[in-house]
Structure formats: structure tokens, C-alpha cells
Simulated scan of single mutants.
Amino acid sequence: MKKSKFIVLEGLDCSGKTTICQILKLLLHNMGIKKILTVREPGSTKIAEKIRNIIKYPNSNEIIHKKTNLLLIYAARIQLIENIIRPSLKKNIWIISDRYDLSSYAYQGGGFKIKKNIIQKLQQMTLKPLIPDLTIYLDVLPKNSIQRSIMRNKEDKIEKNSLNFFNRTRNIYLKLIAQNYHSIKIDANLKSNIVQNDVINKFKKWFQYVY
């Protein structure tokens, strides 16, 4: 029996993460991995989903402070890790997650300019550590991310930020991915079928290398 793995999809909004999560789940199933669970951040537990709605679709005029946003993200992450991810991995269930800790460094650290040491302290306090076996970063230009969000006509609170916000976010992503040996970078600016084939080919190579 193959030991379960923790796989994470990262990238700006509308980079194709949700679609790739489902493609990887089907691919793994065809490779003989039958116990697979897909999750998303923030979310995937009842409490975490409520936190997600507060962050993405606030229904009041009260401004959510950037540090409050960060703490809410980690509160939802703890719920997901302790109630779903850790127990599932112990049961040899593979986890595919739409976002994880890298998003906090990119969005809250880069976009919202929260100091890195604050995020690191939260990470050390909450993750104990839980490091992904593989991170797939779907790199999309901020202008393309914004354009796709507008076309989707369903922008949330985060997606309504400025181009400079997303430039800062992407720059942090690129820096961290370059330092991460357990990661795959994908050009997500191309046509969806090209992006998907690139992910599949590189994922298969990773899978063969791991096993």
C-alpha cells in the first residue's frame, strides 16, 4: 500500500486550481490510489466555511483589518488540519488541497504587507509542522487573474484588490516557489488544455519519482 501524500495547489485567483484539483483526483484514481480527499482553504469544515464567508463575502460595512484577516485564515486552517487533514493522512487517505500556508505568505504577507515574522509565528504555533509532499503553483499574470475574475462576474472581497496588490502577491509566490524543492511551477496563462496537460505530465513524473 502506498503511503498517503499531501498535495497542495497554489496560485492567484482564477488560475485554475479548483479544476486541477479534480483532474489530479481522477488521475490518482487511475493510478491505483482509491482513497483521495479534496479540500479547500479557507473551508471544508462547518466552522471553516463560516469563516470563509466572513472573509470573502462580509455582509456589513465594517472593515476587516488585515491582521484580523490573517488570524481568521489561520483559525480556519487549524480546523481543517486538525479535523480533516491529519486524521485522513493517518488513515492513508491522500489529500489534495486548494490552497495552504503558502497563500498566507503571498496574500497576507505580500498583498497586505504583513510582516513575515508575524506569519512565521502563527505558522510555528499552529501547523506543528505539516509540510506538503508536493506544491503545484499555477502561475498566472495578475492582469489575467483580474480579467478572469471580471469575466466570471463573481468577484469576492479579496479579488477586488488592486493590480499592485496582486503583483506583490505573485512576487512572493515566485520567490517562495523558487526556494521550494518539493514544488512544480506551471504557466497558467496558456489555454486551459495546455495547462492541464502540463500539470498531468509533470505530476506523473513526480509520482514515478516518489514511487
Score class of each variant (00 low, 15 high):
134 L>K: 05
33 I>D: 12
196 Q>W: 08
13 D>A: 08
4 S>M: 07
201 N>E: 12
99 R>Q: 07
119 I>T: 04
53 N>F: 05
33 I>G: 02
144 N>I: 15
6 F>I: 00
139 D>Y: 12
53 N>S: 08
67 K>S: 08
24 L>C: 05
170 R>M: 03
168 R>F: 09
160 K>L: 06
75 A>C: 09
16 G>E: 01
6 F>W: 07
31 M>W: 10
148 R>A: 12
64 I>H: 00
178 A>C: 10
63 I>M: 01
93 I>M: 06
67 K>C: 02
101 D>R: 06
60 S>L: 06
80 L>W: 09
195 V>P: 07
28 L>R: 10
206 W>A: 01
160 K>I: 00
87 P>R: 10
121 K>A: 15
180 N>T: 01
131 I>Q: 08
31 M>R: 12
143 K>R: 14
163 L>C: 04
14 C>S: 13
177 I>P: 06
2 K>N: 11
203 F>D: 05
30 N>D: 12
1 M>C: 09
133 D>Y: 06
200 I>Q: 11
148 R>G: 11
203 F>I: 03
91 K>Y: 11
150 I>N: 14
40 R>G: 01
185 K>H: 11
161 N>A: 06
57 Y>D: 06
85 I>S: 12
74 Y>G: 04
71 L>V: 01
53 N>V: 04
97 S>R: 02
2 K>F: 09
66 K>M: 09
68 T>N: 04
115 K>S: 08
139 D>P: 03
142 P>M: 13
147 Q>W: 13
92 N>V: 08
2 K>Q: 14
78 I>W: 13
209 Y>G: 01
185 K>V: 13
40 R>I: 03
72 L>I: 00
164 N>G: 00
159 E>D: 08
135 T>E: 05
73 I>G: 00
50 K>H: 10
189 N>P: 05
192 S>L: 14
72 L>D: 00
108 Q>Y: 07
174 L>R: 12
188 A>H: 06
19 T>C: 08
41 E>Y: 02
98 D>A: 05
183 S>M: 02
55 I>E: 02
68 T>I: 01
47 I>V: 06
60 S>G: 00
204 K>P: 01
106 A>E: 00
206 W>F: 13
153 N>W: 12
65 H>T: 05
167 N>H: 08
196 Q>H: 11
18 T>D: 04
143 K>H: 14
150 I>M: 15
54 I>W: 05
151 M>T: 13
12 L>E: 04
120 Q>R: 13
53 N>Y: 07
176 L>K: 10
164 N>Q: 11
207 F>R: 05
